[in-house]
Amino acid sequence: MTTPAYPALPRRRFARNLPHWTVILSLVVLAAALAMAVLAPQLANFDPTRINAAMRLQPASETYWLGTDSFGRDLYSRIIYGARVSLVVGAGVAAGAILIGLPLGLLAGWFRGIDAVLMRLMDGMMAIPGILLAIAIVALTKAGLVTVIIAIMIPEIPQVVRLVRSRVLAARAEPYVEAAQLLGTPAPRLILRHLLPATIAPLIVQATYIYASAILTEAALSFLGVGIGTETPTWGNIMAEGRLYFAMRPWLVFWPAIVLSLCILSINLLGDALRDRLDPKMKGRAE
């Protein structure tokens, strides 16, 4: 009898079965963002790259719903097209970071010899501020979509490796893993069958956080002028161009900012909801 004798309390059920209103709202926002990305040609009023010198910095009107930028391009259409880059970058980074981080984390958690070296390498990568690394990578290569995805993905990998490794180490200490060893289960099968499943729930949660932070970083890169070139509209570079006219037309910055923030907020809220449901032990993105 080493377990405390206090009764296990039934969880409040009503809170578990119905999704919270924030979750529903987040899903609506994300569905809208997805629609923007997929149906951009149908939703946009103008070609987002069409320059019209006569129509520079127009206020919002019936033709230009959100006004125009300093090149006379339609802000509304540019924001609609901007969704494409953000959603693709987020998905690419999240998928890439997990595809690379998961096997590394499993290896580090299982093989003690690999662990020490790999984790020092990850410590080293964590020490380099993500945006600086991304800036350097983008600066050295042509700033295309793939480069940006890779540049943002690399600094995210150590977090994934650490998360997976910590879960593997915790699972390894469980008697059921020792039991499997006694049953003669060889290492590869043991890892796939008993250790991998313990990492799935926290990884799903982590993936949503990476998705959100990748969109944020992409916007920051574009904002600093080292992201994807301005011929492809992104929410970040729309703001970067708009900020020169911030005093005169603050909404050139605020409109893309609102759309961007709403989108990230929704993903983060979904991540929190997933965490509460799948993996209540996870303390948050800082694990």
Partner: peptide, 29 residues
């Protein structure tokens, strides 16, 4: 040589059906 562990809450993989846990060893053999 097989073992019965102290804590029955932790000695079975919570994600596997009982059948899967039980036949794991024989399948390995």
């Amino acid at each position: 040589v097989q073992m019965v562990f102290q804590d029955p809450n932790r000695s079975l993989n919570p994600r596997l059906r009982i059948a899967e846990s039980m036949i794991e060893g024989p399948l390995n053999l």
